[in-house]
Every structure is written in C-alpha cells, then in structure tokens.
Design a binder for these strands. Sequence first.
DNA 1: GCATCATGCAA
DNA 2: TATTGCATGATGC
Length: 628
Amino acid sequence: MINKIKKIKVSSFDVETDGLYPYHGNKIFSYCIGWPVLDNLGNPIDCRVEVRRLDNIDSEINKENWKYLQDYFKNISIVKIAHNFKFELAMLKMNGVHVPDETVWHDTMIMSQVLRNLAPSHALDYLCWELCGYSRELDKKVKLAAKASGDKYNLVNVNLMTEYQTADGERPILLYYTFIKEFMKDSRRYADYLNEIEVVKVTQWEESNGIYLSYPNIDKLVLWMESELDKVQRESYDLLKEYVNLNSDEQVRRILFRKYKMPVLKFTDSDTPKPSTDKDTLFTLREKYDHPILDLILKQRSYTKGLATIKGYLRHAKGKDHINPNINSNAARTSRKTSNRPNMQNVSADAGPKNPFPVPLRKCFRAQKGSVLLPVDYDGIEMRLIVNNTGEPELLNLMKSDPAADIHYKTVECFLMDGVFARIGDPIYKSGIQQARELKETDLKKFKTHRKAYKGIGFCIAYGGGLDKVAVTLQKTVDEIKQGDSNYRYRFSRIAGFTQDVIERVRRDGFITTSFGRKLYVQKDKPYIGANYEIQGTAAGILKRAQVKVYDYLKTNKYLSDIKMILDVHDEIIFQYPRSLLPYKDEILPEISLLMIDMPEIEIPLRVSWSISTTNWNDKKDLKVIYA
DNA sequence: GCATCATGCAA
DNA sequence: TATTGCATGATGC
C-alpha cells in the first residue's frame, strides 16, 4: 500500500528515428523527455524538456544517454505519456531497451481517438493546433528539411531538430492535461480508455511476432496467375480483334455498353455517375448473356489484383521469411483496429458463391516452423449483439436456452413461408417452420445454401436496409422476396425497428454508447449509421477485452509463453501455437475460450469456434474445443 | 508527382 | 439509408 502511494512522476516521451520501420532495423537517434511544471490547481504552466541524442561523435556521451534511457524505463513509478506509444514501444524494444509490461503509459493519440472518434486527424501537430492554438510552422519546417535529405530526420540540422523535439516534449503534456479532464467526468469512459492502453501493448506484441510466409505457395500462385493472365490477353484479342486493357473500367465500359450494347444496370456512386462495370453488374450480365468477354474481365481483374497484392507482401517482407504488419489499435471511427503495410485484414480466402475466379491469398501465410495456426472466432457476434441490444425476445430466449443454437435458422423459416402470415402459429407461419425443417432433413446441402444466403439478412435489416437492399443481398428480385422480408420484419419487429430507435437517440445526443461505455459520435446528416456504430463498436470492445485477458493469461503462465497472438481480424484472433503444446490443447484452449466469452457487460451468451492449420492460413480444419 | 475515381478484398 | 477499413490501376492535371 505504501508503495502505491509513493510519489508518482509524470513525463512525456518521444523518440526520433531514422525511419518508420521498427522491425526493419530503423534506429533511434535521439529522444526527448518532458517534465511538466504544474500550478496549484494541477494545470501545466511550463514544461522542462530534455533532448538527448544517441548519434554524437563522442561515444561516451552516447553511452551515457543510452544508460539514462534504460534507467528512465527501469523506473516504473514514472508515468510515460506519448503520442502513439506503440511506435515508441516497438522502437525501444527493437533497439534493446527493456520496457517493463507494468509501465504506466498514457497515449494522447488514443485519448483523442476515444474522445473524438470523428476527428479528421489525430496527429500531434493537428490536435495541438486545433485544441490549444499551438503553431504548426516548426513541423512544416522540419518536414521540409527532412525531405531535402531523403526523409532522414537524423540528417536534419541538429539545432532545428532540438527545437522540434522540445516542442514534441511539450505537446503530449498539453494534450494529456486537456483530455484527462474530459475523462474525469466519466469513469466508464476512462476505464475503457485504460483498456485501450493495454490493447496497444498486445497489438505491438502481435506486430513484433509477425506472420510467416510460404514462399513455395507464393511461387505457385504467381506462376499460375501469370499464365492465366497470358491466356486472358490472347483470348481477349481473339475475341475483340483489338487490344483492350481490361483493367481500365473506361475501356470495359466502351466494350460492354457500346460495342456489345449490353444494358446499363447500375451507375457509379460519384458526382459524375458513369455506367458501372463492377463485379455485381458483370455477374448479372453474365447470367443474362453468357458472353465470354464477361469472364475475361473478371479473370483479368482478379489475377491482376492477386499479383499486385502478392508483390506488396514481398515488398513488405523485404527478403525475410515473415511480415510485421502495422496494426493500429483504435483507428476506425467505431473503435475497430485497422491494419496496413500490408493490410492483413482483407486477405482473400477461398471461393465464395460470388467469386468465380478466386485467388486464395491466405495460402501465402503460415505459422513459424514448429508451430501451427489456431484461428478462433466469435460465432455470429454482430447478430448476437443486435439481439442483445434490441432485446428481441424470441431470439434472445433462444440464445439463452441454447448458446450454440443457429441464430439464422429462423430467417430461413421466414423466407420459406407460403405468403404473409398474420399471427404467430397461423397456417402460413407454420408452413415456413415445416418447410425449413423438411428441407434440412431431406436436402441438407440445399438447406445450407439457403442458410448461407439468408445469413446476412438480419443485419441488413437491422442496419436500415430496405426491401431493395434485401433483394440485392439475396440476389433475387423484389417480388421474389417481398413476402419473406415482410414476415421477417413482422416476426422480429425490434430488429426491424433498431435503426429508427438509434436515429432517435442520435438526434437527441449526437452519439451512441457501446456496452462498455464508449461514446461514439455519429455524423449529424447520417444518424442511421449509429446502428452500425453501436454493434460494430461493441463487438470491437469484446475482442479487445478478450485480447487483453488472453495476453495476461499467456504472460502469467510461463509454460504458455511460446503461444503467440499474431493477428486479429475484427471477430477473430489468430494464434501461433507450438506443436510441442498440442498434447495440452484440451486444457489450454478451453481456458482461452472462457476468457473470450466472459463479458459481464454483455447479457447474451457468446460462443467461439476454433480451427487449426498445419500448412497455411487458407487450408484450415475445424477444431473441436469443449469449454462449456 | 499528386489527387480522384472505380474497383475489390476483409469483417 | 447497412457500415468500417486498405490498396490497387487508370486517368487527368
């Protein structure tokens, strides 16, 4: 107890590096530590900033500054405030500075993201300029100077750099005291922010673990796509008798709508709408005309994109056997994570019903030697949360009585009814129940296709989708699905009314609140978006809490320390799991599952499903894990 | 070289 | 009135 009361010092911290890639050998060449001077009310009136360089000619001074840095991080009673501390963390660790996990960090970028999710920028200079009137001139000057020396900040004039670093020592302090006042008004919001800080640590760990590449699979895919593209080129010339770049939507437009006079089905969504040639359009045309050019366009696009994406992966790997992507822990307006350099959250999987020429890029990724991949994802998390937040009685009761029940089954029933039912249990209503049951019993394959198609209808309707959108989602005509749509909206009226309910709250407050107390502001001219924010934001909160808990579990059990998280994709965590621990998976995986589903803030029961891959991310099998 | 548009992948 | 993202190639200034 006495230790806890011990005087806590607050400081800001910022590193300067010769590049933005901590996992590719970029080095810290300087750092600054800012010490605020507070008045009686606890407001900062001044800031003493120490700037220390690590690239002096005098190596003794460098040594001393490294030592000072190590000592600064050894002392965990000093609070560290940074702007995007994931970067400092990565750089420090990769440059050999030990940063204890218990270090108390604050992050003014995360604070901004949590408090003002719609802000156009969370950059340090922008925020200080907007909120505190802090000049951005110095930033421009340094940026220009760096550009002149090939974006090498270590080559910028030392005096100018010191001036800049002094500002960078002051600014997080300024922002911290501005934002913390806001958090002090709302303890739930503050607790949510503190969780975000832990998420940053997990995320940096994921990044540093990286994802391993399967070079044999990459080679195979590249050769295959190159030869397919060659074929497409030849066939398109034979067909069109002219050279056309099928990657150009303008040229495709000319071929389809002028040369072949196909009908325009859709326009692009822009200020200058043009006839659309997107995949949906080509697909519809394909059913109607069966003209070979349509497949050629689809192939050309699919394989060009596939090749470019693989090239990107190789560029980011820089010759190594793994990739360290950049993962932003709180970048989206809904509090979701994002990934870039490369984006690991949109790697294409196997064939889907709407993708005739799939490029399974997940084959490019594998586990480190000696390990397997264990992806685990939440079962229908968004739909569950829609039921949770609307309190839709029939579905909520179903989930409570059987957490593993199929939440989409009743959607199939609605769309199989012989007309529009008037009352629960009337003959039309019963016809849907019966037909769904019969279909499942007599033709499971067909039933599964149905189920898959209707799977998206729940959230389409909950998020405000109209009859047209439902028809598009099901790839059917409005007439064909009119009755089913009506049945669904009547049977699950709370889901159908969700968007309207949210719109009223957004009009009143300007924001929605997630189940974890996060306020997410919604654009005034689009209040209906709040429905999506509420569900997506809560789902993101669930995954993040799961990650923090699992991280603690793995770190506090020494024999589990080789189990690594390497990526998360919105409702899924991918573990890299040592083969040597496979004999113990039936004890370990249930533990992790329970941590993932134990969310006191969420009333509806949650479920997770595991899979395992010994080869690559694409070729995975279901893995049975019994945890409840 | 930079910005914008159209497109396509994920959840 | 579904939404949140990132990254590419084509095109025009």
